[in-house]
């Protein structure tokens, strides 16, 4: 019904210059945190002074991954789990581009987990934003590698008994240059974090804990999106000094948020260049390796 909604002037929103307002309303459910996370992301890009013509967004498959369709940048909606290698290709092919991967917890840590740890290990210059809704939203609420112990999902009808991943811990251990966690509620801090991550050279990772009222909350009596946001508010603590490997998430414990890692170290491209330079001291590598 709402598909061909003519009443809304697509350009009347302040984010009309960077969102595809002609595609609104989006597919996300009422009370889903994804729209809020996307607003924070877009504001973060603005804060960072991103050049929209050289900023690229790559996503995989899932509710979260649909973000690529709504953002008015070069935006690539790829296959399930493969956003990171696709983005790696773009970045390495053109160092002038700033490449952001925006995808879900299942996409980035289940089917795409291997790509994530390897890109972090190589310190490829990417900004990866992972929306963690503790579930496979798009396919109807199956177990994700983030589903907390004892939470219900459509494939864990008696309660999940698999230990979930601690996303920030993995990213940090694998070698990311920047690691942060926020909830959809921390819109402003999240925007600032996006901005920092975007400007940070190397592999940056941000986990955004976000409410999925339709599948996660329904199966776990979590209430509406608003109820979940309130729950997050009660459970969140900000501690930038926390060790990211020691702050896993569970059903009702603390959600430790903050910027846990923010370090300068050579990116994949830097090390490739340095290696070549060492081997061939006289070659052309002085400037940028790949001028256009």
């Amino acid at each position: 019904m709402a598909r061909k909604n003519k009443i809304v002037n697509p350009e009347s929103h302040p984010m009309g210059d960077i969102l595809r307002m002609d595609r609104m309303p989006h597919i996300w459910c009422s009370g889903c945190g994804l729209g809020t996370a996307m607003t924070a992301f877009v504001e973060g890009l603005k804060l960072a002074g991103a050049d929209y013509n050289s900023t690229v967004v790559v996503s995989g498959i899932g509710c979260t991954a649909r973000i690529a369709g709504y953002i008015k940048l070069d935006s690539y909606h790829t296959t399930h789990g493969r956003a990171i290698p696709f983005a790696t290709g773009i970045k390495l092919a053109n160092q002038d581009l700033k490449v952001v991967v925006f995808s879900g917890d299942g996409d980035l840590f289940a089917i795409g987990g291997n790509h994530l740890i390897h890109a972090a290990r190589r310190n490829v210059d990417l900004t990866v934003i992972c929306v963690n809704n503790f579930i496979y939203g798009m396919t109807g609420g199956q177990n994700a590698p983030t589903t907390p112990i004892s939470a219900y999902s459509s494939t864990a009808p008696y309660g999940n008994c698999e230990e979930p991943f601690n996303l920030v811990g993995i990213a940090a251990s694998a070698g990311a240059s920047y690691v942060a966690r926020w909830t959809a509620l921390h819109t402003r801090r999240l925007s600032e974090s996006v901005s920092t991550a975007f400007k940070r050279k190397g592999f940056s990772f941000i986990e955004v804990v976000s409410p999925c009222p339709t599948v996660y909350a329904r199966k776990n009596r979590g209430g509406t999106g608003l109820d979940l946001l309130k729950e997050f508010a009660g459970r969140s603590v900000i501690d930038h000094t926390a060790d990211p490997t020691k702050i896993p998430l569970d059903m009702d414990g603390k959600i430790v948020c903050g910027e846990f890692v923010n370090i300068e170290k050579p990116t994949f491209w830097d090390t490739v260049q340095a290696g070549l330079k060492k081997r061939f001291p006289n070659i052309y590598l002085e400037k940028k390796h790949m001028e256009e």
């Binding site: 690539y76 696709f86 790696t88 290709g89 390495l92 092919a93 581009l97 291997n114 052309y284």
Partner: peptide, 29 residues
């Protein structure tokens, strides 16, 4: 490739390899 200002990367698997070359091609290479 590195001597020709190209990019060589040994990916973690073939899935990454194909996804990577598709991305690189979108970037014009």
């Amino acid at each position: 490739l590195p001597r020709l200002k190209g990019v060589f990367i040994q990916f973690e698997d073939e899935i990454a390899s194909i996804a990577g070359i598709l991305g690189a091609s979108w970037a014009g290479r």
